[in-house]
Design a protein around this nucleic acid. Sequence first.
DNA 1: TTGACATATCGAAAAATCGTGATATTATGA
DNA 2: TCATAATATCACGATTTTTCGATATGTCAA
Lengths: 104, 104
Amino acid sequence: MDYIEIFKALSNETRLNILCWLREPEKNFPPQGENLSNPIDLKGGICVSSIQEKAGASQSTISNYLDILQRCGLLLSERHGKWTYYRRNEETIKILSDYIGTKL
Amino acid sequence: MDYIEIFKALSNETRLNILCWLREPEKNFPPQGENLSNPIDLKGGICVSSIQEKAGASQSTISNYLDILQRCGLLLSERHGKWTYYRRNEETIKILSDYIGTKL
DNA sequence: TTGACATATCGAAAAATCGTGATATTATGA
DNA sequence: TCATAATATCACGATTTTTCGATATGTCAA
């Protein structure tokens, strides 16, 4: 668990927003996976273009942000067809919360 | 409470260490305030030079770090004579912990 | 198999951050 | 009043981060 990398990832308003939006995906984003050939449980995952639309930055910037959030463990991703669905990694967030509450 | 500024402040190993060291000041630093003319309750505050010695960076760097940590509310400072004593601001840390646990 | 779409990666310019030494400020004791 | 010690601020080069447009890669449907 690299806390420095986590804090760097959280030091950006858009990335922080993405993490918060993904707490309630169905509330903050349109329905997902509608063009998927066979139905799959997306576990609340949201595709890059939906996140991009909401965040209002360029496609490459958002793709990069999602990569940063995933590499430090705050997000999980799963590819289905053309789409990559990102969702929160609650495990890491729990560990971070415990760290702040007890070690920091 | 500017969480972005707080996360920026925490995105640096030395600053993170300083915050952790100040959890147990008497364990991590030499006794403080020995040359003070009249005795004052320092509330666990540690002077800049003690922190600098432990961190092993330049005086200006540590002074700057402490300023960053204070401006975002993670540290409190109190000047006594020639010395500025820095200590944790547990209130902010508690608010941050709650934020991570419930809002993030 | 090809065209179009979704995403990832690359390369670059601008901005921010890092860390330092030099210098300024503040406070004290001789 | 002056020398000195502790801290703060300044100026700067080096590095990192930000954000983008262009391009590459992967996937599916016609």
